[in-house]
Amino acid sequence: MSESDDSAVTEPSLPAPGEDVARGTGVALWKQIAERIEAEILDGRLAAGVRLPTEMELSERFGVNRHTLRRALAELAEKRLIEATPGRGTFVREPPIRYPIGPRTRFSEIVAREGRAPSGRLTGSRIEPASAEIAAALGLAPGTEVLRVDIVREADGVPLNIGSHWYEAARCRDLDLLVAATGSVTRALETLGLGDYRRLETRITARPADEEERRELSLPAGRTVLVVDAINGDAQRRPIQYSRARFAADRVQLVVKN
């Protein structure tokens, strides 16, 4: 038998062994399950970063069907207590990463300092003519060939941001191959002798995530991204990189360093 709606309780009357979700009280089972798991998160029995049992295991634990369980998990996700990552499972949410933005901003160093494991993967690259915006940022004539490199960066396997980076193609040829090999923009630039780059300008805005961002960042509909546009320069303050990073807004706390 199954529940016909949220409040009509038609699950078997006997509670699951070792559990005390109450049948026949008028309180929907999914709500009771959500409250139980929330309590375990808040009192530390389920620590931040811990992967929850599978849907089947939780269904068996509480003696309910998967529809009921999924309503409970959806409630916890809406409260930002848990987060599902495709291919990895559902995890208790980690606190937002404190992400300082200053003269020397390095993703891997920042994430590692927070006790997380940084990683990156190249999702695309191409040579294209510089738009007016990119040309102005890099001090080039519009239409000059630029190399675009797209990369998704993660912390403990959870996607944190999507970055699009533009470089003068003649100066940074094969940079995309180096990014693919190392998973790091910084290490790739170091190989080209440009590793000591510095932040020249940062602009931060916010907007709803688009379809690509929701897919790459594993975000549900309606979530927000923080868009960080930045210009980085070499030791002579000559621009070498224009970047646009889209951060999952609830996974980071951007801190502007003076």
Rank of each mutant, 00 (worst) to 15 (best):
S2I: 13
S2H: 12
S7V: 11
A8Y: 11
T10Q: 10
T10Y: 09
E11S: 15
E11K: 08
S13A: 15
L14Y: 13
P15L: 06
P17I: 09
G18S: 13
E19I: 09
V21G: 02
T25N: 04
V27R: 08
Q32W: 01
I33G: 01
E40Y: 07
R45Y: 04
R45E: 11
G49D: 07
R51S: 12
E55R: 15
E57Y: 09
R61S: 09
V64Q: 00
R66T: 12
K79C: 10
A84D: 08
P86K: 12
P86E: 14
G87S: 11
G87P: 11
E94G: 02
P96A: 06
R98F: 06
P100E: 05
R104C: 12
T105D: 10
S108E: 15
V111A: 06
A117W: 10
P118R: 06
E128M: 15
I134G: 02
G139F: 06
G143C: 10
T144Y: 02
T144D: 07
L147T: 01
V158L: 08
G163V: 09
A169Y: 01
R171S: 09
L175K: 03
D176C: 05
D176V: 02
V179M: 03
T182A: 04
T182N: 05
G183Y: 04
V185G: 00
R187I: 04
E190A: 05
E190W: 02
L192N: 05
G195S: 05
Y197D: 05
R198K: 09
L200G: 07
A209Y: 03
D210G: 13
E211F: 10
R214Y: 07
L217N: 04
L217R: 06
L217V: 09
S218A: 15
A221T: 14
A221H: 12
A230V: 06
I231A: 00
Q236T: 11
R238S: 13
P239H: 00
Q241F: 01
R246W: 05
F247V: 03
R251L: 02
R251M: 00
V252L: 05
L254Y: 02
V255L: 12
V256K: 11
